[in-house]
């Protein structure tokens, strides 16, 4: 009986293997893309101050495809260094200089044409609206007779973004089809916020004002990356 049990035990023992669910037709509809971004922009501020700066960062794209039209939720993070920018908020003149960081959120529509640059690389046109925030250090300033430091100016902006690109057409996204695109953007600032960095993870809002000026006169971006999902 013991022998039976042992044999039965061995016979029935099994291990669970890696198993992927079969690919469905809808697999190619959703896409998650990501990659790198190179940008060049004329960064505008108040008092007719501006700086022409290159910047770099990352892009992410979350999309759904309807035949040839794709709905995209995109985001771009850009880093760079700028100087000579002037802002005025709460009766304080501020001079921004140093590293800046930007975040843009852009819902976009993409139309994928049948035109192929090379085999399986299709041309697409894309257009959308964008909202963004740019954060930059400001130099020490005097406020109510006291010198203040460790502040940042945050510029909220909105605008239009569009361009064209090429993307690799692949039967399944796990093959990591590539894309490259060139986008141009026009953004107008609508709000300034002065914040104080309390420490590495906390900020305190010092002042906020609604303003209207060109945030970017022509932001040119080159995005490239691949499809992860």
């Amino acid at each position: 009986m013991k022998m039976y049990s042992i044999i039965l035990l061995i016979f029935l023992s099994f291990n669970v293997r890696s198993e992927e669910a079969p690919i469905k037709k809808s697999d190619n509809k959703w896409a998650l893309r990501g990659g790198l971004t190179l940008a060049y922009a004329t960064l505008n501020a108040e008092a007719a101050t501006a700086d022409h700066i290159p910047s770099y960062g990352i892009n992410t794209q979350f999309s759904y495809l309807f035949k040839k039209v794709e709905i995209n939720l995109n985001a771009y993070i850009l880093l760079g260094h700028a100087s000579g920018l002037q802002y005025h908020i709460d009766n304080i003149n501020l001079f921004a200089e140093g590293d800046f960081r930007s975040f843009f959120f852009t819902p976009m529509i993409k139309y994928i044409t049948d035109l192929e640059l090379k085999k399986n690389w299709r041309l697409y046109l894309t257009l959308g609206a964008g909202w963004g925030i740019r954060s930059m250090k400001v130099l020490n300033f005097i406020d109510q007779g006291k010198e203040k430091n460790n502040h940042r100016i945050n510029v909220s902006s909105r605008g239009l973004i569009g361009g064209l690109g090429f993307q690799e057409i692949s039967p399944i996204h796990s093959m990591g089809p590539l894309f490259v695109e060139i986008l141009g953007a026009y953004f107008e600032a609508y709000q300034l916020t002065l914040v104080e960095n309390l420490n590495f993870n906390q900020v305190s809002k010092r002042a906020r004002e609604d303003k209207h000026f060109h945030a970017f006169d022509g932001l040119l971006m080159i995005n490239f990356g691949l499809t992860f999902l």
């Binding site: 992410t60 939720l73 985001a75 959120f105 992860f228």
Partner: peptide
């Protein structure tokens, strides 16, 4: 926040992969 609503799942999933 828009940043968190988008970045948490999208950038998070890329990092998760």
């Amino acid at each position: 926040s828009i940043q968190d609503l988008y970045q948490t799942p999208v950038l998070g999933s890329l990092i998760g992969l």
